[in-house]
């Protein structure tokens, strides 16, 4: 655990001096950025490291997904009195983690907010009725996992409501340009995963808590191979 905290800068962030440097393969590749605004430069500079190794369309999709996740955090994740209590005096904070390992790029962004099932009906983006109707239309009960599904589906179909609410849909679409792309959204007790055109949703007994979005895409050392990513 010391190695993980040292690698992603937790000890440095809290002012502890730590000389540990990890040599573990599942630790040493992780990088961390954090912020309280939609800061494209933090997501963009992460992706710039893979210039020439990520298909252009995939890079743009991932950037769009990251920046929308930041914006969702800033606008919705810490709303309400319960949301304010979760800010813990560190603002509407997100954490962005990335790792390149075995030709797979993993990017994760998370917050410690109220979760999608709470933020969706109170965001003002979609009415409670629209959310309820969407859940009924999908034939599913109101669980955390199904709230994620509803948010994605509403974003896909209801973009005409001042154009808002499309962010989560963009987040899912980000990996569609990668042959083996995968996105997982965990929010409170719910989890939604989509890969290769198939989606899965399930609920767990324990809460995350907050929201975590996790993308994995293939990268290559051979620029000629970029064409195999569907750009």
């Amino acid at each position: 655990m010391d190695e993980v905290f040292a690698q992603i800068g937790i000890y440095e962030a809290i002012g502890l001096k730590c000389d540990i440097s990890s040599k573990r393969d599942d630790v040493m590749h992780w990088r961390l950025a954090t912020g309280v605004l939609s800061e494209g430069v933090k997501g963009g500079s992460l992706l710039e490291q893979y210039e020439g190794r990520l298909a252009e369309g995939l890079k743009r999709g991932l950037y769009g997904g990251i920046i929308e996740a930041m914006t969702n955090t800033v606008q919705h994740a810490y709303e309400g009195r319960d949301g304010e209590a979760l800010r813990h005096n560190i603002g509407k904070r997100w954490w962005l983690l990335s790792q390149e390992r075995n030709d797979i790029l993993t990017v994760a962004i998370c917050d410690l907010g109220i979760g999608i099932s709470e933020s969706l009906p109170r965001s003002g983006t979609f009415s409670v009725e629209a959310v309820t109707d969407m859940l009924k239309g999908l034939g599913i009960a109101r669980t955390d996992a199904n709230a994620i599904r509803a948010a994605i589906e509403l974003g896909r179909t209801r973009t005409n409501i001042k154009g808002r609410g499309r962010g989560l849909h963009d987040i899912v679409e980000a990996v569609n340009l990668s042959e083996a792309g995968r996105v997982m959204i965990g929010s409170n007790r719910g989890m939604f995963t989509t890969t290769e055109g198939k989606s899965y949703a399930r609920n767990f007994g324990d809460s995350v808590p907050g929201t975590i979005i996790w993308w994995t895409v293939g990268i290559t050392d051979d620029e000629q191979d970029i064409g195999t990513n569907r750009d």
Binding site: S38, R60, Y63, K162, R166
Partner: peptide, 18 residues
Amino acid sequence: TMGYGSSFLEEAFGGVVR
């Protein structure tokens, strides 16, 4: 650019119409 998020685009272009 590195890309665009839908919130940015909608507010920039939809906003100018509104």
